[in-house]
């Protein structure tokens, strides 16, 4: 086990050292003359107003939630995909049922419009109509 993963540990070390070296090189070789406008966040040449961490579309959050659900299912499928030929018909059909339910769930969320990005935001007046 250790022999198998030791090269990967070495590679991680090599990768971190390489990346750090590249970054530190520019820190020491480059000039360093900060001034106030240079350190301001870029906003098309104007003074930035407000904080950058403003409100953003809730759809980003929904995508993240859906991703977690489906990613767990995909990970669940992997061990089955490798071994199902040895596990007999019972395992095969239960996985088929599971994937069908997964697919139906996906179709349901799509029909519900969870992932519609171009829909107008629901305002109180629009909901009353």
């Amino acid at each position: 086990m250790f022999e198998l993963y030791f090269p990967i540990l070495l590679l991680l070390g090599l990768a971190v050292v390489l990346a750090l070296a590249l970054m530190l090189l520019s820190r020491y070789l480059g000039p360093h003359r900060p001034n106030k406008p240079k350190l301001m966040p870029y906003e098309s040449g104007m003074d930035p107003y407000g904080q950058a961490k403003d409100r953003y579309s809730v759809s980003f959050f929904l995508v993240a939630v859906e991703f977690i659900v489906f990613d767990l299912e995909v990970v669940f499928i992997y061990p089955w995909a490798v071994t199902y030929r040895d596990l007999g018909p019972e395992s095969f059909w239960s996985m088929m049922v599971f994937i069908t339910i997964l697919l139906l769930g996906l179709i349901y969320t799509l029909k519900k419009g969870t992932l519609d990005w171009d829909s107008k935001p629901q305002t109180a007046s629009a909901a009353q109509k």
Partner: peptide, 8 residues
């Protein structure tokens, strides 16, 4: 590498 490294 020779450019200035700016952190906002």
């Amino acid at each position: 590498i020779m450019k200035e490294d700016v952190t906002p």
